[in-house]
Design a protein around this nucleic acid. Structure first.
Lengths: 227, 227
DNA sequence: TGTTAACATGAGCTATTGCTCAGGTTATGT
DNA sequence: ACATAACCTGAGCAATAGCTCATGTTAACA
């Protein structure tokens, strides 16, 4: 689900990520909650670098000390936010798969559903997602998690594609790779820069679905001529 | 050509970007050159935040003072590097268009050429490009430049698509938007994370080209069934 | 050869940031 | 009511980064 680049050079993993205290009482759980929502807002409005821990604590209405009792580093906050996002996305994907196998739509309707679902994910706080996925440095563990989620999504999509007789592709896994990442990248971009003059939201979805459908269902080489 | 997100909140544009001195002698031009290549290397290997100006100067074999005589801020270095990249990409696109209108290939061959060209661009220092385009904060002026380059690329591609009778799409501009950004995003991702187990380089190109060709040439709705 | 402008140097200033810790406040359990 | 643990506070430390400037060196030109 990301376009993040593997970092082999500055992977120092110097900071601990596990909280030094786990909240047990009500007020501390509220603090943790407040810190996370504040962090999301602060990152969204200031970017990663300018999203200082002091600012986050201030916005959350707690002191920096409190923040560092539950998040041992700034990185840990990013990790927590990203894990939330990851769970949300995975949940949506599985929910969608469930709908598809039960509803037995045609390919086009299924793809439309999928694209719209991913669009929804990307339209909520696109800048935050961009910051978390592309701008903030990630510990290797989380990076692996993201890659694993990507791979799992590809396998799931591949399995689903096999259920559609319209799909004439020899290798559903490869096709799934293209589908997953095309939808991911394009919806992300469109959510960030909706070029309304050229293409409004609904038309964008139609175009994207058309491309996917043509790719999956068109016999290869049809309509092509050689120079 | 980017997936960068518009930043409306921290756009302070506090730093000047124009050099305070323009090199006139040979040695200073060499210094500027050295600084730029050093910056590219340092960003590539340390990331944006850890790519300090002192490190860049050290790597370039000059002092920080010299660096700041020609680049008034760290941001200015990023801008210079990105402008280089932008010119390079634009040049490649126009070169490709020239080839296409003169060679009069079929659609598939033309698309293959294009995808391979963009792949080449992304395979050289993908991490640096990622840092420049996604991680480093950009001044609004350069951001507008990137968006303008994107729009121009879409127009160019749209114009070219009209020349191919195989293209059965009603609106070449919208199709061009999808083509441009699909290729951009997917090749970028593939260059960064070449998942060789699932799809090697050449096969990736074939798949991507197949998708684009199917989208552009397949009559819409063929092979699709309704719910 | 002398004068000037271009160029180079690098110690260190200023500002900022992630983070700590010594000491307070609130809840829990008996 | 008392003791203990959970929780909170915020001034400030240590580290670091971007950047400056006083001073020294090299090239251009008369």
């Amino acid at each position: 689900m990301s376009t993040r680049i593997t970092d082999t050079t500055q992977a120092k993993s110097k900071k601990r990520l596990e909280p030094r205290k786990t909240p047990v009482q009500g007020r501390s759980r509220a603090s943790v909650e407040a810190i996370l929502t504040a962090a999301a807002q602060v990152f969204e409005s200031h970017g990663y670098a300018a999203g200082t821990t002091n600012r986050i604590a201030e916005r959350a209405g707690v002191s920096v000390g409190t923040l560092y009792q539950y998040f041992p580093s700034k990185e840990a906050i990013v990790v927590a936010l990203l894990e939330e996002h990851l769970h949300e996305t995975t949940r949506k994907l599985h929910e969608w798969v469930g709908h598809m196998v039960s509803l037995r739509h045609g390919l086009r309707d299924a793809l439309t559903d999928y694209v719209q679902g991913i669009m929804e994910v990307h339209q909520t706080r696109p800048r935050l997602q961009h910051i978390l996925l592309e701008e903030a440095p990630l510990p290797p563990r989380l990076h692996d998690l993201l890659m694993a989620a990507d791979a799992e999504a590809v396998r799931t999509m591949g399995g689903l594609l096999r259920l559609y007789p319209e799909v004439g592709h020899a290798d559903p896994e490869s096709a799934a790779y293209l589908v997953i990442h095309t939808v991911e990248s394009l919806t992300h971009r469109f959510a960030a820069h909706p070029d309304e003059r050229l293409l409004d939201g609904p038309r964008f979805v139609v175009e994207l679905v058309s491309m996917l459908e043509a790719y999956l269902s068109c016999p290869p080489g049809s309509g092509a001529t050689r120079g």
